[in-house]
Design a protein around this nucleic acid. Structure first.
Lengths: 216, 216
DNA sequence: CCGCATCCTCATGGATACTG
DNA sequence: CAGTATCCATGAGGATGCGG
């Protein structure tokens, strides 16, 4: 019984047979941001052993979640998600949304990457819409995550062009608090360094604050 | 470093720290259908060792996903999801939806439980709505899963009262095919035993078939 | 360098027997 | 019924080696 399977005719069990192994979904998370090199994944998953990464990549490739291609630029191997693998975005987003209570508490010494913030912002904001569009930047660890909202939804980009003119530089926890509606724009701005136009932030993040700001 | 954690300040990683362990989400799946006894879980997760079940239950209770209460009826222990634990429904549903390609193929000798079908039907149908309401039954392994649709969404119940008058008795795979839109009502009825009013099934499952039946 | 393969140690999972 | 206790198998973690 190599390849340990739950042996259940159940969607959840079969999904976990494929992506339930340790590290698997974290690798998918990295690839959700975009194709990556082996070394990117090694750094991005922060803690995985080299043999496990290559083993997981081979397994994920075998089942059709990941595919590898040749990176003509660097003449190396590029890993990316297959179309079906990309559809894990919803499941990852659901888990990220569920985890918000775990993000306000917990250990402080955990490692952090801007990529992970981009995934979280996408999960928390993607369905938000606004009649008038806007783009703002969240600056964390000298990288800028840009958040664009319009009437189709909200879209996240890393170090995107053009640079947004309204930027909030803040701690990851503050950005998450803002995106999950636990912090108002005012509170978040007070907890970081802000430059630009506050109206842009209100358009993007004002969704939640309605109830909290009836005093204003 | 007991309690193996990913050590990442990332929602997905923290969620997996809590429910990413082997069997954990399958236990949650059982409890999503309703509170259960230890012996129910042992049977429902089909293959878990007793020590692992008790260990997982203790861990899940510790982090606030599961809670135990006293079952006054049987004078035993009842396990149920906390409110936060119940919110895993979306994540489980997303994984179930993602897994549909894995359900049409794969091993035939896998075990099967009606509970799992109820979870899958909920994941696949929950957001479907209909202006005119209807209730149908899917009979599998001598149990009936009733599916009720109205303008608020679709709701699943196991052996619910009253018994639906329109019932399709079929294999699990046929029911899943119907619910995922891969089979039309006509195809599913041909693959099982049907009694009642076909219109009810069209109301519940007719959502997908539009494109396929333009010939009719 | 990059993308692994190998080796070794130890934590975790799995099966079964047993108990309050 | 609801778990422990025990023992063995497997998988993860970490260091290092190695060919392209």
């Amino acid at each position: 019984m190599t390849k340990r399977s739950y042996g259940q005719y159940c969607g959840l069990a079969r999904a976990l047979d494929v992506v339930g192994g340790r590290w698997s979904l974290l690798i998918v998370r990295e690839l959700l941001v975009g194709p990556a090199r082996y070394s990117d994944l090694l750094a991005g998953t922060s803690g995985i052993a080299t043999n496990l990464l290559s083993e997981r990549l081979r397994d994920l490739e075998e089942v059709g979640v990941v595919e590898r291609s040749l990176d003509r630029a660097s003449n190396g191997v590029l890993f990316s998600l297959t179309p079906w693998g990309s559809e894990l975005r919803d499941a990852v987003a659901a888990l990220v949304r569920w985890s918000t209570p775990l993000m306000v508490t917990g250990p402080q010494e955990d490692s952090f990457r801007t990529n992970w913030l981009a995934v979280a912002l996408d999960a928390l904001l993607h369905d938000n819409k606004a009649a008038v569009s806007a783009t703002v930047g969240l600056e964390v660890q000298n990288r800028i995550v840009s958040v664009h909202i319009d009437d189709t939804g909200t879209h996240i980009a890393l170090d995107g062009e053009p640079q947004p003119t309204s930027v909030l530089r803040a701690e990851p926890a503050v950005v998450l608090g803002l995106a999950s509606g636990m912090l108002t724009v005012e509170q978040a701005v007070l907890a970081g360094e802000f430059r630009g136009d506050l109206d842009d932030f209100d358009i993007v993040f004002g969704q939640f604050a309605g109830a909290l700001r009836t005093i204003a």
